[in-house]
Design a protein around this nucleic acid. Structure first.
Lengths: 204, 204
DNA sequence: CATAAAAACAGAATTGACTCAATTTTAGAA
DNA sequence: TTCTAAAATTGAGTCAATTCTGTTTTTATG
């Protein structure tokens, strides 16, 4: 019977994540010391490293929660997209962007992105890449849906288009989190302006 | 007479950069300890920090050399672009990509990119953003040139298009350096495929 | 229920980036 | 040449992430 041990394990995982999330929010990523997280979670430093490979992985677990929520919210748009290509893209991208700062501060995003490129083979690095792929996939699914409805030309290379849109959005988001004074509406407007070129190329 | 002091300063800068470049190449960024760089450059640890704010800035100086060289090489293409929109873009992007691993290993790129998002306000963070902007600007200049020649439609939003192309390329490059087994020809082919959609939308 | 192997834990020790107070070097005025 | 203030250098010390090693807890078996 794998009762107690598994339960304690899950419990410790949860306590560590909750403690870290709180301290990251309060003190920032760098400001949240591992010792403090350990104390708050009522485990030892060694135990944290038994659960996570490094500090970045703890942040990674939090980021994954966030992105999965966003992916979930995006499903609705893919299922029933606005009847206009530009609006459909804008709505989906809007969901991504508007959710993005719900749990994670810009500083946390910066750290998460940095770690994912710095250590692409760490657990979090791989998870982050998978999340990016899932987002790209969702955009591609939206395009396929629009093609089926007949709003987008059939001869468009959906895969390449999805990547193009995601890559541009993602890069814009990276620049957005790098500047504390950057605002969401401006980010969305800039992306809309860029996508306008694409939309013109793909509408029936 | 600002002789001796200025000369020694320049000399120490050079020695630090050379030592760091060598050790980064040999041992990787993390593997190159500041003490080792200091020893190799025949200065003390403190002196290094008198010249650079942090370890990342040393890498940053090396990256800047590289990117400026690339920008220079790109000038030629902008001045005399191939007489075909797709080829023109491919040639410019080809220059960027083919040069990219000349001085810098993928691991060094990963570190540089990570630092630039992690510390966007550090000297290197700002320099990196400026370099990105310069590359975007060069792509935009190419488009303007192609518009002038009459290969690209006049009513295209050149600024937005330049950003779109750069952002996509840059994101693809980030994914490229994250995977050690990724190869340059495949990277170029993937970007060409993505750009094909755009090219179709903008040629006269 | 006793017990040995396996898993998880604790926290002291290590490591390496970065700081800082003391010392040395330089520029240029007298 | 001598002297002094400013600039630069030095390296031992600090701090925090990560590692390591013994100890404790859990599981499963007889």
């Amino acid at each position: 019977m794998s009762g107690l041990r598994a339960r304690q394990k899950a419990d410790r995982h949860r306590r560590i994540i909750e403690a870290a999330a709180e301290l990251f929010r309060e003190a920032g990523y760098e400001g949240a010391k591992i010792e403090a997280i350990a104390a708050q979670a009522e485990v030892s430093v060694g135990t944290i490293y038994n659960y996570y490979e490094n500090k970045g992985d703890i942040l990674g677990a939090i980021v994954s929660l966030e992105v999965n929520e966003v992916l979930n919210a995006g499903q609705g748009v893919v299922a029933r997209p606005p009847a206009n290509v530009g609006d459909a893209l804008d709505t989906l991208i809007g969901i991504y962007i508007e959710h993005s700062l719900h749990y994670l501060s810009k500083e946390m995003w910066r750290q998460a992105m940095a770690i994912s490129t710095q250590l692409p083979d760490s657990p979090f690095g791989q998870a982050y890449t998978a999340l990016d792929r899932a987002l790209t996939e969702q955009i591609r699914a939206l395009i396929a849906r629009l093609q089926k409805i007949g709003l987008v030309r059939q001869d468009i290379d959906g895969a390449a288009l999805g990547e193009l849109i995601f890559n541009n959005m993602n890069m814009m988001f990276i620049e957005f989190v790098k500047r504390d004074e950057a605002k969401i509406p401006e980010l969305r407007a800039a992306i809309r302006r860029q996508n306008r070129i694409l939309v013109a190329a793909i509408v029936v």
